[in-house]
Each structure stands twice: as C-alpha cells, then as structure tokens.
Amino acid sequence: MQKLGMGQAVNQALREEMHRDPGVFIAGEGVGVSIHVNPMLPTHGLLEEFGPGRVKDTPVSEAVIAGLAVGAAEAGLRPVVEIMFNPFFTLASDMIVNHAAKLRYLSGGKSTFPLVVRIKSGAGFGAGCQHSHNLEAWVAHCPGLKVVMPATPTDAKGLLKTAIRDDNPVIFIEHMGSYFAPPMPVPEEEYLIPLGRADIKRKGRDLTVVTWSGMLGAAMGAAETLSREGIDIEIVDLRTLTPLDTETILASVEKTGRLIVMHEATRTGGFAGEIAAVVLEQGFKYLKAPLRRVTGPDIPVPVSPPLERFYIPNADDLIVAVRELLP
C-alpha cells in the first residue's frame, strides 16, 4: 500500500475529486505558486496538473476567498478554498459564519452551498499565536457548518472526498504537524468516509479518551505507555466535530465508565466542554469517576520553545489525568 503524509493524502483527495467532477476548483493564497515548495504539502503540483483555470492563486484577501466559495457554490460549482493558517479564519469569518452557514436557511432550504474551507492549523512551529490558534470550537458553534478534523492520512483522504461531495459548507481543518509526521499506509483506491462518524483508534476497557486532530498521536502514545502497566485505554478519534457522533462516545463511556477529552485548543469554551455536556446529559449513569479535560491552557500560543511546549498538551499530561481517574 502507498505510504502518505497527511498533506499528500489531502492532495490525492483533491486530485481525485477534480478529475471526477469538473465543477471542483481550488482557490487561496499560494495554492498554486507557493513560498513553500514541498511534496508533503497539500496543494503541491495541482497547478501543474489542472492549470490556472481551476487552481486559483488569490491576492491576500481572505474575505473574498470565502465569499468566492459562497457565491460559486450557490451557482453550482464545488469550491475548495484554503485559509492559510487558522487565525486568518477571522478575516474570512463573515462570509463563513454569516453567509455560508446561514444562506440556505434564509432561502427556506432552496439554495445549497456545497463548499469546503480547508484550514491549516496547530501549534508546534514556533510561529506564535497569530499563526497557531485552534479555532474549531468557534466554527462548531455555528449551525449550518460541518466541522471535520482528521488525525490520520487515511481519514483525511476519505473525509475530504466526502466533504467535497457534501451539499453543505464543510470546514476541514488540517493539523500542520500531520503533514510532516511519518507517512502512513493509505489505500490507493477510491474510498469515502462518512462525516459524523467517530472512529475507535484503540479499543480498551478502563477509560475512554475522546480526541481529534493533532492530539491523537499523544493519546496513542500515552495509551501505549499505560498498557505496560495493565491500564487499557480506549481512544475515540472524533474526526467530525459537527455533526457529532454522540452514539460512539456514549457507547464507549458506557463500556469504560471513565472519560477524558483531550484537545490542543484552549480550555474555556473549547469543544471538550460540549462532549462533557453530552455525556453528562445522556450518559451520567455510566460514569464511575468525574470527567477530565486535557487541553491547552487559556493563553495565546507563545513563541519561545519552553513556553510553546508548556502550551501543547502531551502524553504525560494525559497520563497524569488518567491516574487521577483510575482507582
């Protein structure tokens, strides 16, 4: 089987969908001619393959990049636009939050907006808070949007293809750390992964960790360490934040009786709170212990290496939380 990094898997999904559907085009800053020339990056080589008619380099203009997607999607195209770094989402946010998310509703269900906004996100690059702010909870808070955050190359490929074919606006957030993680086997053939379905990345009986995106690796690492002591962790990779797969979360908590939610984003108002609420509302009776959140602290992501390391939740933080919850 081919081995791909996440950027390459995204790249393959884009290529396949562009070949399949002439209505799919991509646009964004540097999606064609880039300042980063690296085959591990998601839009590498697309301009050469599909030409400037379908691979549109835009000026530095996030509002119109997002607006372009909204208008073109309503007209029947399938735009896949890119916001270079998660914090720049704020410049595109009027078009996404007030328009992509709401215009179908405002049309009484008559219009559809089949668009994908790909956003690169994540800390760990010393780039600081204006490049490394994880904002998934902001978009998950908007009815009308679907929010997808793959953690593996295989999931990224199947989920992105589904997102492009979905008739709703999908925010597709890629953790940049995954671009440069060791490549993983990815099926060569065409496959789709449904949105709204979590994936159990590791089966276990003692405690459930719900996580997504860049934190999956740390969670798997912690589970590995703990397994040597006979502690058996189940890891639920959410993959899609909205629509949320409450069924898989609840079934796992029913089995283990213990829950930790882990994400890189800051704590207050983070998406862990939503998962906690779902479990407290619908699965309170399963819980044998209080639940815990392992998240970034409530600070902007700092630059200095020891400070940035302090920010990013890691396997050790998770292990500490696990030990608190186990008898």
């Binding site: 010393g126 600081g128 808070c129 490049h131 902007p300 700092p302 630059v303 200095s304 290496p305 400070l307």
Partner: peptide
C-alpha cells in the same frame, strides 16, 4: 531567540 530577556519575554518571537 525566544529568551526571557527579550523585549516580550519570549512570547512574541521574531514575528510580533
């Protein structure tokens, strides 16, 4: 360099 003695105590780095 991201040092404590930097003008922003290591919070901003080269870009901010």
């Amino acid at each position: 360099f991201g040092k404590k003695t930097g003008c922003n105590k290591g919070k901003s780095g080269t870009l901010h």
